[in-house]
Simulated assay, not measured.
Amino acid sequence: MNAASHGFGVLETAGPVVVWVVVLTLVFLECALIIGLFLPGDSMLITAGIVLATHTTGGQQAWALSVGAMIAAIAGNQVGYVIGHRTGAKLVARRDGKYLNTANLHRVNGMLDRHGFWAVLVSRWIPWVRTLCPLVAGAAKMDHTKYTIASTLGAIVWAPVLLLLGFYCGTFLHRISWLMPVVIGVMVAVLVIGTILGIRHYYQEMAKPAEEVEVDEVEHEL
């Protein structure tokens, strides 16, 4: 048991600075750029919360990072919207792409057209839609004020809920000396492997033939 604890000591004592950098970077990328389609954002937030539970200042760090992650998500949403808006009505998909394909872009376009505000709000909890929504909303000329309010409310709920869920689960696990290192080790390993595979899949997707997809202007008022 002691050997296991020492073996995972590096993971348990990872500096909050490292956690902050990883969380803010991945949250921003997932909300702003296409590469975010392939990054494990949800599991990353939960893992960060669990890791912070091992620190003496974990409570303050978790709440502060929740605010930071919200800001990163809001900023990412705005960058994604601007990119889509400047691209115009024609977006570039990938033929036979897993996520960045014509069907998914039209699906998100249809959601925004039918449900507008609520589609943006709910999309926060659907990984691939979370990344495509800002891009499509900008290209479809969705009202920027409504989009900003909906995406901001979504970010306010999404990041803190997952990060604090991880933190409070971590405080419980921390009471079981042998279990905490194992859980952190497994989750960090899954996160690292998922990120590496995600980046690989991103380059594979981008290597596929490009095709233009024209999106319809969003007219939904709510």
Rank of each mutant, 00 (worst) to 15 (best):
A3C: 01
A4V: 12
S5F: 10
H6S: 10
G7P: 01
G9K: 09
V10R: 14
L11N: 04
E12A: 15
T13W: 02
A14N: 08
A14T: 14
V17S: 01
V18D: 10
V18T: 13
V19T: 12
V21T: 12
V21M: 08
V23M: 10
T25K: 13
T25S: 15
T25N: 11
L26A: 01
L29P: 00
E30N: 06
L33G: 12
G36N: 02
L37F: 07
L37D: 03
F38R: 07
G41C: 11
D42H: 13
S43M: 15
M44A: 09
L45W: 00
A48H: 06
G49Y: 00
G49W: 00
L52D: 04
L52C: 12
L52F: 08
H55P: 02
H55D: 03
T57V: 08
W63A: 02
W63R: 03
S66R: 10
S66A: 14
G68N: 09
G68H: 10
I71L: 13
A72N: 00
I74E: 09
I74W: 11
I74D: 09
Q78N: 06
V79A: 10
V82S: 13
V82A: 15
H85S: 15
T87P: 03
A89W: 00
R94Q: 08
R95T: 13
R95H: 12
D96K: 15
D96W: 13
N101M: 05
A103C: 08
A103T: 12
V108S: 05
V108G: 04
M111P: 02
D113I: 04
L121M: 06
V122W: 01
R124G: 15
W125A: 12
W125I: 06
P127F: 01
W128G: 04
L132T: 05
L132E: 05
C133K: 01
L135T: 03
G138I: 03
A139P: 03
A140G: 13
A140V: 07
A140M: 08
A140E: 10
K141D: 14
T145W: 09
K146N: 13
T148D: 10
T148W: 09
I149D: 02
A150S: 04
A150G: 02
S151N: 14
T152A: 10
L153M: 14
A155F: 04
A155N: 11
A155P: 08
I156C: 10
V157E: 05
W158V: 06
A159L: 02
P160F: 08
L165H: 02
G166P: 03
L173K: 04
W178R: 05
L179H: 04
L179A: 14
P181C: 13
I184S: 00
G185L: 08
V188D: 04
A189E: 12
A189F: 14
I193F: 10
I196G: 08
I196F: 09
L197I: 15
L197A: 15
I199P: 07
H201K: 12
Y203D: 05
E205M: 07
M206K: 12
A210K: 14
A210H: 11
E212H: 03
V215E: 06
V215C: 04
D216P: 03
E217K: 15
H220N: 11
E221Y: 11
L222P: 03
